[in-house]
Write a protein that binds this DNA or RNA. Structure first.
Length: 419
RNA sequence: GUGAGUGUAGCUCAGUUGGCAGAGCACCGGAUUGUGGCUCCGGUGGUCGAGGGUUCAAAUCCCUUCACUCACCCCA
């Protein structure tokens, strides 16, 4: 049987791989300017970590987790799972290191693969990459605003046309009242709700708000913004004002809810119309109770994650199209030229040229054809005659002219840029 | 988990009422003894997704199954 890749897992070749790298490099540059510190954490964690953060009834825990079965003798180590998201692991590491007590204000970024067992579709994979930011010990609105401003810088750097939406879900004070009102509304309209919403009513009532089956009905549901307590209202107003000052084109969407249970106050989502139905390319928000819920001190937290593959889907191809072609391709004619050619290649590379030494087992014609295909600017041809005369035939493949160049002058002749 | 669409060469796809599996691109070689692109000529390459059925005969009709894609759900 042919060995194929697993469903929902992707190979990335050529331009596809370059697009992902461009997204990650742009995100790193963004993180650098915001003085964030990298954090690298394990891919495998205890299942309990996700049960306690995402909620045991969440889809992520109930059916999307990649559980890793252990041999019987290791059963004492507890059940483990590949991470479905980055936030719980970062918090666990933060608490593990004792930072919640010794030095609580921390600004992190991470980059890596996440795993969720879902039915794949455009923009949704079983293994995907997220670039995430998590900030601890900052409860102020300026912090929330800066995250959104950071994302705006990121998407501008990539030339992405996106939609920013924000909402506030309230905190431990006011959210229960909102949730209760939503439940009451759901029960009152039970017969009008779609089948999915009947499930949501039990499992995750906030999700009633973004029902697509009957968007009109969902509009009549209670809105979190109307239930905010005074501090939450003040906080949200400040976030709105600050991102307004920065000129981020952001809309308030009272029906914007997040998938995970732990969000409080500010939530936001950045969507692109270019990537299919799974249109959220960045999403995040505040999760003030989560550090404590995972066994740490009562420390505020806020963050977001960029979906690397989704962002790459939204990218214009000309931004990552040109793969790096070699400056020079070396054509060695005959076995006797190989020693000379390999040394020539080494020297040019030492001087910063991008050089590919072509197979000496094939003919000149085939190698020049190959050099052309690779997009090499120059072909460097060496055979018996050249070695005897101490020269290299430098052929400019774009101009079509060839000149014999003294060995010592080859690097200069191939110079795209000065040394 | 649910629904729809699509499976023919490495890629993109044709293949008529069932009648010898094709084209373009790519790859390899030649036209040109050690010179690319353009052109011309030739060549390699197929379990027609898989299994079963109907038929003298199936890529084509029927059944089953698998894979991929998109959407629901969920979400980055």
């Amino acid at each position: 049987m042919k060995l194929t890749r697993l469903r929902g897992f992707q190979d990335h070749l050529g331009a596809d791989a370059r697009a992902l790298s461009l997204v990650e490099e742009t995100a790193r540059a963004m993180a650098y300017r915001h003085a964030l510190n990298e954090i690298r954490i394990p891919t495998l964690e205890r299942i309990e970590l996700y049960e306690r953060s995402s909620g045991e009834t969440s889809d992520v825990v109930q059916k999307q987790l990649y559980r890793v079965p252990r041999a019987a003798e290791a059963a004492g180590e507890g059940d483990q799972a590949l991470r479905p998201e980055g936030t719980p692991g970062v918090i666990r590491a933060y608490i593990d290191a004792g930072l919640d007590r010794s030095d609580p204000e921390q600004r992190f970024f991470y980059s890596g693969s996440m795993f969720r067992y879902e039915r794949p579709q455009k923009g949704r994979l079983r293994q995907f990459n997220q670039f995430g930011v998590e900030i601890f010990g900052r409860a102020d609105a300026a912090c929330d605003a800066e995250l959104i401003i950071m994302i705006d810088e990121f998407r501008r750097a990539l030339g992405l046309d996106v939609r920013f939406e924000v909402n506030s879900l309230g905190d431990g004070n006011c959210r229960p009242a909102f949730r209760a009102a939503l439940l009451e509304w759901g029960r009152a309209h039970y017969s009008e709700l779609c089948e999915d919403c009947h499930q949501r009513l039990e499992r995750n009532p906030l999700r009633l708000l973004d029902c697509k089956t009957d968007a009109e009905l969902a509009k009549s549901a209670p809105r979190s913004l109307d239930y905010l307590c005074a501090p939450c209202r003040t906080h949200f107003a400040a976030v709105e004002r600050l991102i307004g000052i920065a000129g981020v084109p952001c809309e308030v969407n009272p029906r914007l809810v997040r998938g995970l249970d732990y969000y409080t106050r500010t939530t936001f989502e950045v969507t692109s119309s270019a990537v299919g139905a799974q249109s959220a390319i960045v999403a995040g928000g505040r999760y003030d109770g989560l550090v404590e819920a995972l066994g740490g001190a009562a420390i505020a937290g806020t963050g977001f994650a960029i979906g690397v593959e989704r962002t790459a889907l939204a990218l214009a191809p000309e931004r990552y199209g040109a793969g790096g072609a070699p400056d020079a391709a070396i054509v060695a004619i005959g076995a006797g030229a190989v020693d000379f050619a390999i040394e020539l290649a080494r020297e040019l590379r030492a001087r910063g040229r991008r050089v590919e030494l072509l197979s000496p087992e094939r003919g000149v014609k085939a190698l020049l054809k190959r050099a052309d295909k690779l997009g090499a600017r120059y072909a460097l041809i060496v055979g018996e005659d050249e070695i005897r005369n101490g020269v290299v035939q430098v052929k400019d493949l774009r101009a079509g002219v060839q000149t014999a160049v003294a060995r010592a002058a080859v690097a200069a002749a191939v110079a795209g840029q000065p040394d």
